[in-house]
Amino acid sequence: MLARYLAGRREPPATLRELALPVAFAAVPAGLVALQPDLGSALVFAGILFAMLFWAGVRIPNLVLLASPVVSLVLAFSPWTWGAWIFLLGGLLVLWRPYVWEGLAVLAANVGMGIVALPLWERLATYQQNRFLSFLNPELDARATGWHIIQSKIAIGSGGWLGQGFTQGTQKRLAFLPAQHTDFVFSVVGEELGLVGVLAALALFFALLAVLIRVARRAPEPFGSLVVFGVVGLLFTHIFENIGMTANVMPITGIPLPFFSYGGSFLLACFVGIGLCLRISREGREPGYREF
């Protein structure tokens, strides 16, 4: 739907006000999902949204200003960082000079987010809170919430250069690593195949995404192009979040890894997306630039 809308416009949304509609498009399902609660999947929506907005031509500053309240929310845990962010934001507003009202709205949104941060934090369920805390310091609660991260890091770290051998990983075998076939499958890759395997997997993912971007470029019409880039966004969000989670770079959310994680529905969704892209790529192979 988003693709349809964005493709239909002659010009990309230029101002924040014009961005409101696409954001709403994404926000509604994201909100529903977030209330499930499944913050991770809601994050995916945001990832897709931003990818498509970028591909549709929204200017970077607008994207940054759009994302700024979220950043403010995240940084609100410490007054100093939040203050620094507000200061930076003020500088950016001056630099980029959006419309005055829009600029003020952004500022107000940021401040509002900062204020709302604390009650929001307390409204979070304990496990969600612990996830964020464990992300910053896994040793804090080593036997419960930090367990995943610690075991994942141990598994990856004990892989070394070449790993312990396919199916020979001890952490996996002795059940020290939980969710080893779903969310933490990349830790297994790290443990068993080592750095070499990790780099190979990363390279493969990169190749996939690069090919998809090329397809998006060659798509004959904007709609198809946007769809493909949406798929790129989807895959990228999943990949980055999952692999980052196993290496303690990103907080833990229940995001599976495309084509690796065990779980039929997501695999199917990935393949459907790939299928769409293939269709669009076929069209793009035809030479000629079609008028739109």
Partner: peptide, 18 residues
């Protein structure tokens, strides 16, 4: 960035994690 973080874990921290 991801590759670097893995490098840090798997090569630099190998002994510790082992």
């Amino acid at each position: 960035l991801l590759a670097l973080s893995f490098f840090r874990l798997q090569v630099l921290g190998h002994d510790r994690y082992q």
